[in-house]
Design a protein around this nucleic acid. Structure first.
Lengths: 250, 250
DNA sequence: CGCGGCCTTGAGTTTACTCAAGGGAGGTGG
DNA sequence: CCACCTCCCTTGAGTAAACTCAAGGCCGCG
């Protein structure tokens, strides 16, 4: 995928950018998709395109900071980002990841404060920023905009709620199982998952250590639930995995 | 507060309702506050009042269910609610709590699905429900509505993000310390916190067992950080507490 | 007074973490 | 082209945090 030949995310330094998915050549954003528009709404799309500031960020770049006042909505057109917080010590603690095309932060800008998370690019990425005031000015003329933004925000809530539930009520194995199931290809397709990120990043998302993740994988392999070769794994027993994911520890 | 005399949430059965805060006599909602409106906007307020279905729910009632299709926005005018999930076994696993006046769920209804959480009243509560379609119809006439709803949704995101971070990166003591600090009275007031809920409910919010919470309290008392008498506790050393809360375990 | 629910405390166990060592893959420089 | 170096993943051993199970005390209620 990212590397020419192989199965692994081949990056070396987190900030160095071997792992290149060059931002797509077209400079435009798929607004229809991102906003979940049904009608064509070409006038709205054009207007959005005008107010959006699109830019490319190399892997490892800090795209959002909790220091910045939140005055723009930010979306990821392509690439993958990690949301979390930088510690005073300077290390970054990811809480979750976002893969474009999706909103990175469609909410903070509606409040008078800063962004809620720091965000760092994992792969090269293309991001677009929309000033809140510009959107507010577009609303009267484009009645489809507000509901679309409300939908976009609502959609962002979903994974967060899920995450809270998992962190609060599932043990490490359950969280990993749930994570795998979320990545499950459509039924009918091969139940094979390619990991596009370092395992330690996956571990961070699951709020466990890389060592624990490694042991979990070995354990699932022993149980015959999955099969692993490097960064490519195959789900052998989806029902079993689902039961592990649902087994809400304690 | 809730009981006539005492310091404890005196309820016996979780669903029984000794712990009564009768929903306020006025049948109306403070829309200005809930929506964060700045201008008076009386026309909008009246319109909202018309489309809102207000009802009172006794303590222990199931107000929202993940089985229901989400077609209404729900807000809690007064009282306290727990959000979480019922297990197949029938027990309720709270993830977080909401105290009125605040939105209980301002997001699910914008999507075509069910509610994201089950919600149970902890105290007697008054809830209001607004059909999404009604709000959409009000939007063209009331330009202040959409931004207000966007703000409301955005505000709901904030505590959730915080919660994810705490669950992912803080140990039990840190989460409890952070929880206490969130309840800290305004600086200048007495640093005394009255617990209005059973300790086991607090524990559930923190994703720990009641036993662990009890031990944490004892430990903080031993350290001289807090003082406890029943359900009333005094913060003796706020800076120390803050450092515990910030100490992002590991 | 007894009962039921709640909180507390103790003992033992489990889970996941820390620390440390070793192997593999990929890029780099001689 | 090969040696080396770095970063990553894995595995093992020991430890710490939080859980489970169980027993005891308190309080309000019937």
């Amino acid at each position: 995928m990212f590397t020419t030949t192989a199965s692994a995310p081949s990056l070396r330094t987190p900030s160095a950018s071997r792992r290149v998915r060059p931002a797509s050549t077209a400079p435009s954003i798929d607004w229809i998709d991102v906003l979940g528009l049904v009608a064509p709404e070409t006038a709205l799309v054009e207007a959005l395109q005008r107010v959006a500031a699109v830019r490319d960020a190399p892997a490892g770049a800090l795209v959002l900071s909790r220091e910045q006042p939140a005055i723009k909505l930010v979306l990821v057109a392509s690439g993958q980002m990690a949301l979390g917080r930088s510690t005073p010590a300077g290390t970054f603690r990811p809480s979750r990841s976002v893969s474009g095309p999706a909103w990175l932060d469609a909410t903070s800008a509606w409040l008078h404060g800063s962004y809620l998370n720091d965000a760092v690019t994992v792969t090269d990425a293309r991001v677009a920023e929309l000033p809140r005031v510009a959107l507010e000015m577009l609303m009267p003329r484009h009645p489809a905009l507000a509901p679309a933004l409300l939908r976009a925000q609502a959609e962002a809530m979903n994974p967060l709620t899920e995450l809270v539930h998992d962190l609060a009520h599932k043990d490490a194995e359950g969280r990993f199982a749930a994570w795998l199931l979320r990545r499950l290809p459509a039924p009918g397709d091969e139940p094979v998952i390619a990991l596009h990120e370092r395992k330690r990043d996956i571990a961070a998302q699951l709020a466990i250590t890389p060592e624990t993740l490694s042991r979990l994988c070995a354990q699932l392999v022993r149980k015959g639930v999955i099969e692993m070769r490097g960064y490519r794994l195959r789900l052998l027993d989806v029902p079993r995995l689902a039961s592990l994911a649902g087994a809400e520890a304690a």
